[in-house]
Design a protein around this nucleic acid. Structure first.
Length: 586
RNA sequence: GCCUGCGUAGCUCAGGGGCAGAGCACGUCAUUGGUAAUGACGAGGUCGCCGGUUCAAUUCCGGCCGUAGGCUCCA
């Protein structure tokens, strides 16, 4: 076993505290429910968990009892004592206690790592196998709160037994804990599923089926705004938009390999031919490439598709817009010469950054994933591609981390993640080199010597899935979208019926400029209409009454600003138009 | 797919073996108003679906579907 000092170095004091609290939780559970067998209990971001095996399920009430007992245990102020023993001794001891999971861990350590000794930690009467380190005594433990119970497979293996995991938050001070709870509350308020419902963006229905999204008119406006922007940006950058069919003969999925790999897709039969609903857009693009003899002069060739795909996601992973069974990718495939690889990658990275920034995301994280053990292609090809990716990143002076061996079996890749307003990380963009598909579909171009050659293929997505990105946008802005994305940009609120005619003129003015306006004609008081406009996060409310009609003005209420007073109607229209066209973020 | 919880009006939710409840939204009427909720009246339900127990099930039990949080997956 690695030496103690090295491990202590690796664990921060906070992690050590959380880790020790996990032990305290195990002690509490064993004291309250002695028949329970313990699994493992590591520190995690914001807290810790411990896995238990017990006949009865833990309930929310049990959590309170356990939490109380933990506090009592901490008050006892037991020391955490470390003791090193022979592995065989430890096995005997845990066997005698019936702690089969601990026995399994030690046996693994012995057989896989060849350890002789293991370390045990004694806390009062409780002994746990653990490499440590721990706090010296329970006095040093901070504040914590048990949060929830969840199922978790032993060793993360879905074929093994399902244990009960108790999650807890833990911090050094009460203030930090409360701050974190506040953050969770804020995240809950921003939940795209809740906002999606209240802002009438999208819905789902159990009669329709799990993981299937229905766009409401407001959601469709948001989606179209994103799509239109993407089309324009792609065309600017010499991509050609294409569209493949939603179903392709299964033979194609056999050629691509998805069929043999058991890719989660849907199949059905027409005229005794089996078809598969597309879970990816690439095969169609490969066939489109093959419709002509391509010259090296045609490369790079960039096919772009807003491609709607269907995937048989497991029921348990579905999550609003973030994980649905049908979604649309902003997908593109770039066919190029190996020598063009680097500059293509640079262009894609710049493209991604541009797009992210336009949507209001300033912080990104980049990961480069290299060749995994199981992979196809020769060393030279892999080296060249990986180097191209890496050089592109270096040339752009982009900070990145390397995920060694985490690439796809068919090629290395770059993933670009963004951070949202709550500093959460979301995986969106991906740039993947693919050596497999050009080969499998036998695509080629003619080089300057008249020879047939295999082009390199890049798969890339910027937003990833439009649904998922919309979910991220909703949470990032908490539903208060910038003008260019807002389903309703201006709400016109007349004070009384006699102002409707003037209001209608304003509606026309705005619509003529292509702006999205809602005219609230309801027989309600202005306070009520304004309140609702605010709740719907509409960026502008224009209030019109006698004063405005006579002066050809509007009284502007602006989101994030409040009552701005009167402005001439002409200037007001121009202001909204500017905010719309400039895609200003506020 | 697995574990645990949940499913009552369009929405948010209360209730609980014996006539199904509230607020908001919706409809009608009155009110024509100046920056976060005008008032009155009305309509709205196979209590997710199927089966079982019971004189009686929305309520208890089982299965299924959906959903929430995790796990596994999504590399």
């Amino acid at each position: 076993m690695a030496n103690k000092e090295a491990l202590e170095d690796k664990m921060t004091p906070l992690e050590r505290m959380r880790h020790s609290l996990a032990h305290v939780m195990a002690i509490a559970v064993k004291e309250l429910y002695p028949e329970t067998k313990v699994g493992i209990g590591p520190p995690i971001e914001n807290g810790f968990y411990y896995d238990f095996d017990r006949e009865d399920s833990f309930t929310q009430k049990d959590l309170q009892k356990i939490e109380k007992r933990m506090k009592r245990i901490i008050a006892r102020n037991d020391a955490f004592e470390r003791k090193e023993v022979l592995a065989s001794e430890a096995i005997d001891m845990f066997k005698a206690q019936g702690e089969k999971y601990k026995v399994e861990i030690i046996e693994r350590l012995v057989s896989e790592k060849g350890v002789d000794n293991v370390s045990l930690y004694y806390t009062g009467d409780f002994v746990d196998l653990c490499r440590g380190p721990h706090v010296a005594s329970s006095k040093e433990l901070g504040v914590f709160k048990l949060t929830r119970i969840a199922g978790a497979y032993w060793l993360g293996d879905e074929k093994r037994e399902m244990l009960q995991r108790i999650y807890a938050l833990a911090f050094e001070t009460q203030a930090e804990l409360e701050e974190h709870l506040k953050m969770l509350e804020e995240a809950d308020k921003r939940d795209h599923r809740k906002l999606g419902k209240s802002l009438k963006l999208f819905t789902t229905d159990e009669s329709i089926g799990a993981g299937l999204i229905l766009y409401q008119p407001n959601g469709m406006i948001l989606r179209r705004a994103i799509e239109q922007f993407e089309r324009e940006e792609h065309i600017k950058r010499d991509y050609q938009e294409v569209l493949g069919p939603g179903i392709l003969n299964t033979k194609v999925w056999k050629t691509s390999g998805h069929y043999q790999m058991g890719y989660p897709m849907y199949f059905f039969e027409i005229d005794r031919q089996e078809y598969g609903i597309k879970p990816m857009n690439c095969p169609a693009h490969l066939y489109l490439f093959k419709t002509e003899i391509r010259s090296y002069k045609d490369l790079p060739l960039r096919f772009f598709e807003l491609g709607t795909v269907y995937r048989y996601e497991k029921s348990g992973v579905l999550h609003g817009l973030l994980r649905a069974r049908t979604f649309t990718q902003d997908d593109a495939h770039i066919f190029c010469l190996p020598s063009q690889l680097k500059s293509e990658i640079i262009d894609v990275i710049l493209f991604v950054q541009d797009v992210f920034k336009t949507f209001g995301f300033e912080k990104f994280e980049v990961e480069l994933s290299t060749r995994p053990e199981k992979s196809i292609g020769d060393d030279e090809t892999w080296d060249h591609a990986t180097k191209s990716l890496e050089e592109a990143l270096k040339e752009l002076d982009v900070a990145y981390e390397i995920n060694s061996g985490d690439g796809a079996f068919y090629g290395p890749k770059i993933d670009i993640k963004l951070r949202d307003a709550l500093n959460r990380v979301w995986q969106c963009a991906t740039i993947q080199c693919d050596f497999a598909l050009p080969e499998r579909f036998e695509v080629s171009y003619i080089d300057s010597n008249g020879k047939k050659c295999r082009p390199v293929m890049l798969h890339r997505a910027i937003l990833g899935s439009l649904e998922r990105f919309m979910g991220i946008l909703i949470e990032h802005y908490a539903g208060a979208f910038p003008v260019w994305l807002a389903p309703v940009q201006v709400n016109i609120l007349p004070i009384a019926d006699r102002h409707h005619e003037y209001a209608q003129k304003l509606v026309r003015d705005l619509k003529r400029k292509g702006l999205r306006v809602h005219f609230d004609k309801r027989n309600e008081k202005i306070g009520f209409k304004l309140r609702e406009s605010r709740e719907n996060r509409v960026p502008y409310a224009w209030i019109v009454g006698d004063k405005e009609v006579s002066g050809d003005t509007v009284s502007i209420w602006q989101r994030g600003v409040g009552d701005r007073g009167a402005l001439s109607s002409e200037e007001a229209v121009q202001e909204v138009l500017d905010a719309h066209l400039s895609k200003a973020i506020w």
